[in-house]
């Protein structure tokens, strides 16, 4: 299964809906998408991972890279995820302390730092 990406704007946030598998093969596409959004001036990103079936460390690396980029512009990168098997990867790498993780896009949109 390949990676699917779609973006939409909700208020001042940009929601990136990701579906499929984020691994060493597909992660560069997600990286390109995040870099493009930041270059276009979208600094408050919400990555909706509810449609993600698989995530590995390459994907984590891309998300950390995205966070670094938006932070350079005082932006934010929030994640939406309820899937235990994906959340587990954030936990074992300690990244739950780095990313705000929300239960729904609405919750992420409403969140403030």
């Amino acid at each position: 299964m390949d990676l699917s990406l779609s973006t939409r704007t909700v208020g001042d946030r940009t929601v990136v809906e990701v579906g499929g598998e984020i691994d060493v093969y597909t992660a560069p596409k997600l990286r390109e998408q995040l870099v493009e959004l930041v270059n276009e001036g979208h600094y408050h990103l919400i990555v909706d991972m509810e449609g993600v079936d698989f995530l590995d460390s390459t994907g984590l690396g891309v998300l950390v890279g995205g966070l670094k980029r938006v932070r350079a512009h005082e932006g934010s990168l929030r994640l939406v995820c309820n899937q235990e098997r994906i959340l587990k990867i954030f936990r074992i790498t300690g990244l739950t302390k780095v990313f705000p993780i929300h239960g729904s896009v609405d919750e992420a949109v409403a969140a403030t730092d």
Partner: peptide, 17 residues
């Protein structure tokens, strides 16, 4: 540097799992 960081993260995930 990115590659090395990704490789280290990969090993961290394996060790955790």
């Amino acid at each position: 540097v990115d590659d090395a960081a990704e490789a280290a993260m990969g090993l961290a995930v394996i060790s955790g799992l």
